[in-house]
Design a protein around this nucleic acid. Structure first.
Length: 279
DNA sequence: CCCCAGTCCTGCGGGC
DNA sequence: TGCCCGCAGGACTGGG
């Protein structure tokens, strides 16, 4: 499930199309229910064909392809979406294709097994709306501990649940939330309003360390094998997970307590009872 | 406002 | 061997 490190890896993998020109945009024949592509593909095509790719960006867990027209193509992989310059894993579930010229890569694919993701073409006005400060918080790699405390410090929610709130901080998902709190030595069920400045500092430091380390390893490809970079290659950070999906295995930090799995807001949380006390 | 539960979707693994 | 159910968790919505 692409979170910030996986989406950032996708973004970097797309850099070869910068400067390229878009020759075509189409839905690809997919037997199942189509993913959300807006606007309708004929309008989409009319607006992007002939445009030059100016830059590739990222906002939280979304990839942004900025065009010289001012419009932006926003790719949102959600659970199982892949943005590729290489051939997709299967012909099944290929959802969308951009043809390019004048660039090292001639095609961009959007592939999505479960089809929860989307491909949207946004005008500058729509972009400002979708990514307004009320809808999406500061990027997890840029947020300061003061901002983090300011945005979540009065919430009564559990810190693990709050870290998943993209309006507070953008880019953290279920996997990295557990890893971040383990490194910060903070209990995942700790109420935000009971955390002190020093703990917010540790959380912010851990966010940077975990996410940057995961980016350096090109993200996590879990046992379901879904996540791939733009060249359809696996990430390597799954071999560095300390607690995520490691229930019952000894905590790598204290080497004594087994990793515990609990459910918070209907999602799995993994932590070490010894290293992450409620105090 | 704040927060939780339900929704979408497919593939896989456990239970019987 | 085959079927069914539950689970995985992105973002969003409805309601208490």
């Amino acid at each position: 499930m692409p979170e910030l490190p996986e989406v950032e890896t996708m973004r970097r993998g797309l850099l070869p199309i910068v400067g390229g020109r878009i020759d075509d945009a189409c839905r690809t024949p997919c037997p199942r229910k189509p993913i959300a592509i807006t606007p309708r593909i004929d309008h989409f095509r009319r607006r992007v064909v002939g445009c030059r790719v100016d830059s590739i960006g990222r906002v939280g867990k979304r990839v942004i392809v900025r065009l010289d027209s001012g419009d932006a193509i926003v790719l949102e992989p959600r659970m199982t979406g892949l943005v590729l310059l290489a051939d997709p894993p299967t012909r099944d579930h290929l959802r969308f294709r951009l043809a390019l010229s004048n660039a090292p890569a001639g095609e961009l694919f959007y592939w999505d097994r479960r089809g929860l993701g989307s491909v949207r073409l946004l005008s500058p006005e729509q972009f400002a709306e979708v990514f307004s400060p009320e809808r999406i918080g500061p990027d997890a790699l840029a947020i300061t501990s003061e901002e983090l405390q300011e945005r979540l410090g009065t919430s009564r929610r559990a810190i693990k649940v709050a870290l998943l709130d993209q309006r507070a901080v953008a880019g953290i998902g279920n996997l990295y939330a557990s890893e971040i709190l383990h490194l910060a030595e903070v209990h995942p069920a700790k109420r935000c309003d009971l955390l002190r400045a020093r703990q917010w500092q540790r959380i912010q430091t851990a966010i940077g360390q975990i996410l940057n380390d995961a980016i350096a390893h090109e993200g996590s490809t879990l046992s379901d094998g879904t996540y791939r970079n733009a060249l359809n290659q696996q990430g390597g950070y799954q071999h560095h997970h300390q607690v995520y999906d490691r229930e019952g295995q000894p905590c790598p930090r204290c080497k004594t307590e087994p990793v515990i799995r609990i459910v918070q807001a209907q999602r799995s949380t993994f932590y070490c009872r010894r290293c992450q006390t409620k105090k």
